[in-house]
Simulated scan of single mutants.
Amino acid sequence: MHTGNLAELKQYDKIKKQSLYKSEPFEVILLTIAKDEVLKPHTSKTDAFIMIIEGDIIFTHEGIDFNLHKDDLFQFKANQLHAVKALTDTALLLIK
């Protein structure tokens, strides 16, 4: 079943979060972050997986910075401190 188009959903105005799919075991979220915006340090109640679909970020995980770019993948466990700084307009899929 066709449910949408990512290009049409991307909006680079600060930080936008859109749920694309949600079921009992997991949720898929499109997160768009405008250049220079920061998602402050926080934790997640579940394990998570991100896939960068556009842009460049600094992903800080447990105090270590990772430069992530289009097509990069990153996974982390629940309750681990992480943050994001967008170096360019960025879109990523968050699966948790």
Rank of each mutant, 00 (worst) to 15 (best):
L92G: 07
P41Q: 03
Q18D: 01
D36T: 14
T60Q: 03
E54V: 08
L92H: 08
I57C: 00
K35I: 05
K40C: 06
K77D: 10
D89F: 00
E54C: 06
V84R: 00
I64V: 04
A78G: 09
A91L: 04
F74S: 08
L31K: 12
I50Y: 02
G63K: 03
Q18G: 01
D72V: 05
F76C: 08
F59P: 03
K77W: 04
A34I: 09
T46K: 05
T46F: 07
K96V: 13
I29P: 02
P41D: 01
I57Q: 01
L81W: 07
K40I: 03
F26I: 12
K16C: 15
K96T: 12
V28M: 14
T88E: 10
Y21E: 10
K14V: 11
I64R: 01
K77V: 09
K14N: 11
L9W: 03
I95G: 11
Q11I: 15
D36P: 11
D71Y: 09
H69I: 13
D71A: 11
A78S: 06
D65L: 04
H61K: 12
F76Q: 06
Q11F: 05
L68D: 02
A91K: 06
S19F: 06
I53F: 00
M51L: 15
G63L: 00
I15Y: 07
A86Q: 04
K96G: 13
N67T: 15
P41F: 00
F74E: 01
